[in-house]
Design a protein around this nucleic acid. Sequence first.
RNA 1: GGAGGGAUACCUAAGUGGCCAACGGGGGUGGACUGUAAAUCCACUGGCUUCGCCUUCAGAGGUUCGAAUCCUCUUCCCUCCA
Length: 419
Amino acid sequence: MNVFEILQDRGFLSTDSEELTRQVTDPKIKEILGKKKVTCYIGFDPTASSLHVGNLLQVMVLAHMQRAGHRPIAIVGGGTGLVGDPSGKSEMRQLLNEERIQANMDSQKKQLAHFLDFSEGKALMLNNADWLTPLNYIEFLRDIGRHFSINHMLTAESVKLRMETGLSFLEFNYSILQAYDFLHLSQNYDCILQMGGSDQWGNICAGTDLIRRVEAEKGSKKKAYGITYPLLTTASGAKMGKTEKGAVWLSDELLSSYEYYQFWRNVEDQDVQKFLGLFTFLPMEEVRCLGKLEGKDINQAKEVLAFEVTKLNHGEEAAKKAQESAKKLFSGGGQAGAIASVEINREDLSAGIPIIELFHRAKLAKSKSEVRRLIQNGGAYLNRERVESIDLQVNLDSLENDEILLQAGKKRFARVVLG
RNA sequence: GGAGGGAUACCUAAGUGGCCAACGGGGGUGGACUGUAAAUCCACUGGCUUCGCCUUCAGAGGUUCGAAUCCUCUUCCCUCCA
């Protein structure tokens, strides 16, 4: 099986030839991927300091490419980030300054390294600011700009969407810059394939078109290809990777490995098999087998999913820890190591601390009013027993094994230890 | 530069002098039912020293017993004309 087929098998690409034409600019790419080693790239957005689950699909695609012996390039849009992709956005995005982008890039690379092997040039990470910022406007217009037709660009879905609210010239240029990226990579790194989410279709096509035109002018037949995959939504239609707290970050500084594990443990039933295919490297026979589980049994598949995905991002040890913690907590057993803890000093505790304050300090609620409501709704637990009164004072008597287990609802825990 | 429209809580969007901490929807949080799922139903969703008090309706002033609502100025956004 070549990578293309693997991607089809795992659910990145459709097996339906009709649908596939909307995912692939030219079906020949399938053959090419089987025949020779190619260089391919995906662009990443430098607006956040960490990648999140929404980016994970892209990362997995690159990882599959590398495993198949191809060379993936991750482009961080240091240059295009200064412009802002209007695709799918109804409003103009906030522009970032350069220092910020640089810092974000650095931390994103660390995260990518969990999935890709950057040694010996087996994978590359490049910043498009390196070739975009030195561009000379007049030269650029003459060499690149003349290949673009405004008439054509105006028909782009992303542009139409903005006809009502307005689209700045800056943003209008975004796809040209992205096309130029592709051209640059094609010429300097022999990159022939760009991949991305389906919202990138227009931008990717702009790139393949540009390369074709520029090459044709030189009398060359060199071609470039594009592959897109659907934007991921959960079975209930929500965007992947967003939770009440915001994005599901890959960085353990922004989201603990325990919470990351929990995110995957709690996916909807219908998504389990799909996610196993997309976000793990488990053999598909096993994936299909797990996907067949029904009713309560599907929880086993969810555990596998959560474990495998956490392992990829945070390492095996963290995954094990998260799994154990979760099992202990939810099976009602002892204490867990991976849940957040707060320190309270002994004097404070022996004097007695109002329960409201304790929950607030443990960060289980943003305000004391929130704690009040939580208790009134019967969702607050102290050492597994429901807190009945908002006036409860907690003192040394509540210690069990030198700690106090607080719980908000069924899934949020914190422990209090003496500090 | 001219004319007009707008800015309300996480998002969306009502409210145009007191009944407004502000309708509704979304989202979120809790509860019930469950399988740490989905669907459904119920409650909650500014803060606090919580039967009361305090700070909110872009910002600053003003009118009034009383303003998110009226007036003035400022900032920002949008539409149309140039």
